[in-house]
């Protein structure tokens, strides 16, 4: 049922409209790859593809977490800051002699606590999601900078840093992490009752409450999942760059939100999927990657990304209206 939730107000939704939309995005992604394959010599090299998959992987995981929150009609602006903060956390723990696995576990736990704090602010203090996550965005950067004294903590554990460079079955391990996150996320959102509750809370929280849905718990769940995904990405980033640095992942929250929206998530809530944001993230990564290969000025790249977001989401809106 949730598969159909992205079809808006259609008197008779076409079967598999969402799947079709997924295919359209997939088509766009393949088209971009084809185009870049023709117009550059270096795109279809294993090096570049691995690089692209690594680039897209982290945004993709953030976007999935972000999507849970957006489906409840919320927003999580803190994810970029959580990524940076988590890289500092794990680096600091390793520096202080905490073994690798506990250090990673504690970092994820910090992610859980940050998410719980967001939900606490929303549910108990009555703050708008925008405000509480904006507040932690700036605070977490500050705490990270304080801990590192404004510099970076390098990570000497090689098994940790090697992970991000490793391949498994010829595919970068970072990309495997997307799958590790996406499969449970898909089961959670599309096959379990908790996923349904996210949609219900995003559509009409009062109706959900009167139907026996624990609205507060659902909100906690959404923000905890988002922050935990961000903490996980923080681990991946720390592994990739080999340092903990609070200023890393600047602006990634916007990348995550953009990926989610490109993937068909509605910022008004109650519409979204897991596969959409994944495709959205890799479309964004491809655009950046392609622009690099084509030697497009880095400043112009930003403009192109902005314009493409408008175009893609506009076409999505048209498609929805058309199906009405």
């Amino acid at each position: 049922m949730s598969v159909e939730t992205t079809t808006e107000a259609a008197p008779v939704p076409k079967k598999g409209m969402n799947i079709l939309f997924g295919l359209t995005l997939l088509g766009l992604l393949l088209f971009l790859w084809l185009l870049l394959g023709v117009s550059t010599t270096s795109f279809w090299t294993s090096n570049n593809i691995s690089n692209l998959l690594r680039q897209g992987a982290m945004t993709a995981i953030l976007a999935v977490g972000q999507t849970f929150v957006i489906i409840t009609a919320g927003i999580d602006l803190s994810v970029g800051a959580v990524v940076g903060f988590s890289s500092v956390t794990v680096a600091w723990l390793l520096q202080h002699g905490v073994p690798l696995w506990p250090a990673m576990g504690i970092t994820l736990l910090v992610g859980v606590l940050i998410g719980a704090f967001h939900a606490f602010g929303i549910v108990r203090m009555g703050l708008p999601a925008f405000i509480i996550t904006l507040a932690t965005l700036t605070s977490l950067r500050g705490i990270g900078l304080l801990v590192t004294n404004g510099s970076t903590i390098s990570i000497s554990d090689e098994s940790f840093t090697n992970f991000s460079r490793a391949d498994f079955l010829g595919i970068p391990s970072l990309f495997w992490m997307v799958i590790v996150v996406a499969i449970p996320a898909y089961i959670f959102l599309h096959l379990s009752r908790w996923g349904r509750y996210l949609f219900a809370v995003g559509s009409n929280s009062e109706a959900a409450r009167l139907s026996g849905v624990n609205v507060n718990r659902t909100i906690y769940l959404a923000y905890i999942l988002s922050s935990t995904c961000a903490a996980f990405v923080g681990l991946l980033l720390a592994s990739r760059i080999g340092i903990g640095n609070a200023t890393q992942a600047e602006g990634w929250e916007l990348q995550a939100i953009a990926s989610s929206v490109i993937g068909g998530t509605s910022l008004f809530g109650a519409v979204g999927s897991v596969h959409g944001p994944l495709l959205g993230a890799f479309i964004l990564a491809t655009i950046n990657n392609g622009a690099n290969l084509l030697n497009v000025n880095a400043f112009v790249q930003r403009i192109i990304t902005g314009v493409l977001i408008i175009v893609i989401v506009y076409f999505d809106q048209l498609r929805r209206r058309g199906s009405r």
Partner: peptide, 21 residues
């Protein structure tokens, strides 16, 4: 509108909402 239905969700999901567990 305000208390009874999740308007932008399908009929089936609205009906099943109290009994998903």
């Amino acid at each position: 509108r305000d208390q009874g239905l999740c308007l932008n969700l399908p009929i089936g999901m609205n009906i099943n909402l109290p009994v998903f567990d």
